[in-house]
Write a protein that binds this DNA or RNA. Structure first.
Length: 323
DNA sequence: CATCAGGGCCCTG
DNA sequence: CAGGGCCCTGAT
């Protein structure tokens, strides 16, 4: 347990996203809870991945003077597998939605009173997710019924026990374990990590992945409803987690069918300038206003809000975010 | 000190 | 379909 790797520079990739592209908005999501598998500074993003059972450290930077190109330095343990880098590049294009066509989105809502100014600030931002399906399921489970602080604690203890500490480019970040790595770990052992009843979920989700109970690749590109139906079969994964999975991981820009209480308060404020608008009314409103782009639109607004919060306190928002 | 809800979900009746 | 139970923590 708790192995560590001093990552060597293995390769350098150059990615060309569709334009326009927004580097910081795409790679850093201030509304997400902090996790020890990534770090961000202006124009630089470090992220671990466990790609094909192989822990890697990635450093993303803007290539100055080269349009919107991104440099990705790949760190890890040297091994002979020549096609890994090509496959990794394709995987990163998918995970960070680098091939997205947002022209309609940008044009159609240019004059939307709320969304227009936000698009001006974040034009080219993608919905992105650095994780695999399995990794995202773990994140979704630790988010359930917990405050941010507790979610961080739970993921941290999981990383310490089963993750790989990657040292690369002057950073120390944890890479996720694979389902196979923890296939023989008992539910009781997981419980000692203070994840509570979630131990059972993690145990069963891991078993499901190991036995090929669900195929992430096959779900990519399938329609929203059938993806939702498949995911809902997973033990421990319900409507709230499905919503995050559909949007963040599978990039369904219209996956906006439920609102949690804390989100409801934010939408009430931003869209209606009121304290609390009924959830049904909000859902109907965004459906009519932003159509099939409604969750992407919402994502833009949320991230914009949380970016603002990094530089200045927003009292009503601070009150909604429990640490 | 006790009690309770927290960025759900499962299971039961 | 409504409602209780679940692990653990920090807030009150």
């Amino acid at each position: 347990m708790g192995n560590a790797i001093d990552g060597q520079l293995l390769d350098t990739l150059v990615l060309h996203p569709t334009v326009p592209f927004h580097f910081d908005g795409t790679f850093h999501k201030p509304s997400h809870f902090p996790s020890q598998d990534n770090a961000y500074e202006d124009g630089k993003y470090w992220q671990t991945v466990n790609f094909r059972g192989r822990p890697l450290g990635l450093r993303f930077t803007v290539i100055e003077g080269a349009g919107e190109a991104i440099e990705v330095r790949v760190f890890g343990e040297p091994r002979d597998s020549p096609d890994t880098m090509n496959a990794l590049e394709a995987e990163l294009r998918w995970r960070f939605d680098l091939d997205a066509d947002l022209r309609e989105f940008n044009e159609r809502f240019a004059h939307d009173r709320v969304l227009g100014p936000v698009i001006d600030r974040w034009r080219g931002m993608r919905v992105s997710c650095a994780h695999s399906l399995y990794e995202f399921l773990i994140v979704a489970v630790v988010l359930q019924n917990a405050t941010v602080r507790r979610s961080v604690q739970m993921l941290d203890s999981l990383f310490r026990s089963y993750g790989t500490l990657m040292r690369f480019d002057g950073r120390e970040l944890y890479a996720f374990w694979t389902p196979e790595d923890v296939a023989s770990v008992s539910e009781e052992e997981l419980r000692t990590l203070k994840v509570g009843y979630r131990a059972k979920f993690i145990h069963r989700l891991t078993a499901c992945m190991v036995t090929g109970g669900i195929d992430e690749d096959a779900l990519r590109g399938r329609d929203r409803q059938s993806v939702a139906t498949e995911l809902l079969k997973l033990y421990g994964i319900g409507p709230a987690s499905i919503g995050m999975l559909l949007f963040d991981l599978f990039h369904h820009y219209d996956a906006f069918d439920a609102i949690s209480p804390w989100e409801q308060k934010i939408y009430s404020r931003v869209l209606f300038d009121e304290e609390l608008v009924p959830a049904e009314q909000i859902l109907a409103h965004v459906r009519a206003r932003w159509g099939d782009w409604r969750m992407l639109a919402s994502h833009y607004i949320f991230e914009d809000l949380f970016w603002q919060r990094k530089t200045r306190s927003i009292p009503w928002l601070d009150a909604l975010i429990r640490l």
